[in-house]
């Protein structure tokens, strides 16, 4: 399967190309599993630039991005972090889920994200000017609001922002057909179910059904699982821990498929 295939949701491909040409950084907002990572990988291939991905988390420190001294027999040496590497060699540095990093970590991005395009490294005293092919891309899920984490507004305002959502029904259906290897009827059914469950977001379930989960369901179905089981295990069970909510969702799925076990 071609892992680089990408179905555009709107004009994001053109926007990305334009930003790359203008040497501007990009910020992508969107819920989990809606295709952000896939998009960057695709754009990396399209533009012929290597993608350096950093998945951000709570304990991510500036050193994890920039680099640190390491030891070997002869003594210590400096090891570039993924950010520094991309800055030196060119390529896309992609900070996935940047909102998971603490605010003070992402401050190092400031000077890279504006017209200066430089990275100062305090520990070695270097000031690296970014390679012309260097591009900074960050993504996060705006569904999580956190008082302590996230990017400062001043940092955010340096980016070209793209807002992703789950693809519209038609495109999502095509993605599922391709990635999940199912026919159109099944794909369409899955999309219908997803749209119904997405209505519940914000009140009864913790997370909406993502395109990724729909693909899992499709894969299970194409492996020969009965559609009800496939949907329950890939879509429903992960959405909530509350039995009464789950029960309704199971009923919904049951109604969608003629239950072959009955």
């Amino acid at each position: 399967m071609d892992s680089s295939s990408y179905f555009a949701q709107a004009n994001e491909v053109e926007l990305f190309e334009a930003a790359a040409a203008m040497k501007l950084p990009i910020l992508i907002k969107g819920p989990t599993g809606c295709g952000k990572t896939r998009f960057i990988e695709f754009m990396g291939q399209k533009l012929g630039r290597k993608v350096h991905t950093v998945v951000c988390h709570d304990d991510l420190s500036a050193a994890d991005l920039i680099g640190r001294h390491l030891i070997r027999e002869e003594g210590t040496y400096w090891q570039d972090g993924p950010l520094t590497k991309a800055v030196r060699e060119g390529g896309i540095c992609y900070l996935d889920e940047v909102i998971e990093a603490r605010k003070d970590t992402t401050v190092v991005l400031h000077s890279l994200a504006d017209y200066r395009r430089v990275l100062p490294i305090d520990r070695t005293g270097e000031l690296i000017e970014a390679h012309p092919d260097f591009m900074l891309v960050v993504s996060y899920n705006p569904g999580y609001q956190n008082v302590l984490k996230g990017m400062k507004p001043s940092t955010k305002q340096r980016f070209i922002a793209l807002s992703f959502d789950y693809p519209n029904a038609e495109i999502e259906c095509q993605i599922i057909m391709k990635e999940g290897d199912v026919n159109e009827t099944v794909a369409q059914k899955l999309v219908t179910i997803a749209h119904e469950i997405r209505r519940l977001k914000e009140s009864d379930i913790q997370e909406a059904v993502s395109t990724r989960l729909l693909i899992y369901a499709a894969k299970l179905i194409s492996q020969g699982f009965n559609p009800y089981d496939a949907c329950v295990h890939s879509i429903v069970e992960s959405l909530s821990d509350e039995e009464d909510v789950l029960e309704v969702l199971r009923t919904l799925i049951k109604l969608h498929f003629l239950d072959e076990n009955n």
Binding site: E196, I197, R199, L200, D204, D244, V245, E247, V248, L249, T251, L252
Partner: peptide, 12 residues
């Protein structure tokens, strides 16, 4: 009641 309310919401 609760299940039906959720179901109502699910179906739009």
């Amino acid at each position: 009641r609760k299940a039906l309310n959720i179901f109502y919401h699910l179906l739009g």
